[in-house]
Amino acid sequence: MKLNLNIQPLNTWITSGKEPLVIAGPCSAETEDQLVATAKLLANTGKITALRAGIWKPRTRPGEFEGIGSIGLEWLKRAKEETGLPTAVEVATAKHVEEALAAGVDILWVGARSTANPFTVQEIADALQGVDVPVMVKNPVNPDLSLWIGALERINNAGITKLAAIHRGFSSYGNTTFRNDPMWDLAISLKTQVPDLPIINDPSHITGNRDLIGYIAQKAFDLDMQGVMIESHIDPSVAWTDAKQQVTPAALSDIIDNLTLRKAEVKSAAVSDKLAELRAKIDKIDDLIIQKVAERMNIAEQIGKYKKDNNITILQVNRWEEILKKTTDYGKALKLDAEFTEKLLELVHTESIRRQGIILNEGQEQVEEKLTQA
């Protein structure tokens, strides 16, 4: 289902003309000299759309550096005056909104921790009533698309039409390659539901590792995202926060130079015709996949009835392990990623178990009604 948010196109409120759109600057404003010097080096690259800096820093645990506070807004103002770069700041309270706007900040963003709390988002939205300022909303810490969309709706309902989303990845438990799992499918789902919404990728927070920033930024642009927000510090080795994910302005310039920008629209008739031909083939295969899944579910229901008649449990662990190994091995032979095959199998298996559970625990009329409504 598509949502109709009242959104202005990105090029009407970011008019620098630079491609790609790059918002960059230090994770935290630490000192006036650090911020202004970084801003000047970024401006000198000629590749930066706007300057970002953390003024208030929500930290996981107390005692860590939580931002320099309001004085940093004066430093940001000076950086803007000396470089000509528009400025962007994260806000987490109504007071932050008021102070940032009073200091002439050009773009505000709502952080991941704030997005996860509808009360906080509503407080920010109320403070934005009657204000014409661009606002970007990061995805919530947890992978909840409805929560992300809800935050965007609250800001939009406050009258903010210069609106964008920031994809910064989602928290996951345990050791992984990335600091935050990209979960690209959720960003794609957001784009599908709100096609006019600009999405800006934050490879710094996704990777937590400066060496992977270029890789994630390229993937974001390949998925038709409209820009990136990258943390940059004059000397990342001494940064007070998130040192490992910040890059120098020179390194940032190299990252941008190495990006390949592709077009979302197809203008060549020959290319368009070829894509249409290949997509038609995919459509036919998709139809067959759905038909085969439906056939599989019909057989699973027959198995459910047989189990009910013979008083057999739904889950047969040995059988599931056998299917998982056999099909994953088969998928590998066909050059399918093992993790993808396993996730697909688990999805189909979970639906089969759900249907068998209905059959084992309900009468026939109730079964038919529930299966039809599912």
Rank of each mutant, 00 (worst) to 15 (best):
W56D: 08
A374C: 02
L261G: 15
P203N: 07
Y330N: 15
V271G: 13
V228S: 14
I199Q: 02
T248H: 06
N139P: 01
L315P: 01
K267W: 01
N310L: 04
N310M: 11
W56E: 04
I206W: 10
T313N: 04
E346H: 10
Y173R: 15
A24I: 05
L152I: 02
I155A: 07
I312K: 14
N157Y: 11
P26D: 03
R354K: 15
A300I: 09
Q364C: 03
L186Y: 09
G84P: 00
I312P: 02
P203D: 07
Q8N: 15
P118N: 06
E321L: 11
V348D: 07
S70W: 05
D106K: 01
N258Q: 13
K308W: 04
T341E: 10
L5H: 02
P195I: 00
D196R: 14
H96A: 00
L371D: 04
L42W: 04
I206K: 13
W109N: 12
E339A: 14
V348Q: 08
P62K: 11
N117A: 02
I255W: 11
N157S: 09
N201Y: 14
R168Q: 06
R52W: 06
A239I: 11
R296G: 12
N258S: 15
K335Y: 14
L288G: 03
L35N: 02
F65L: 15
A79E: 00
T177E: 09
G304K: 12
T83L: 14
T177Q: 11
I107S: 00
N156Q: 12
L101K: 04
G150P: 08
A39Q: 09
V247M: 03
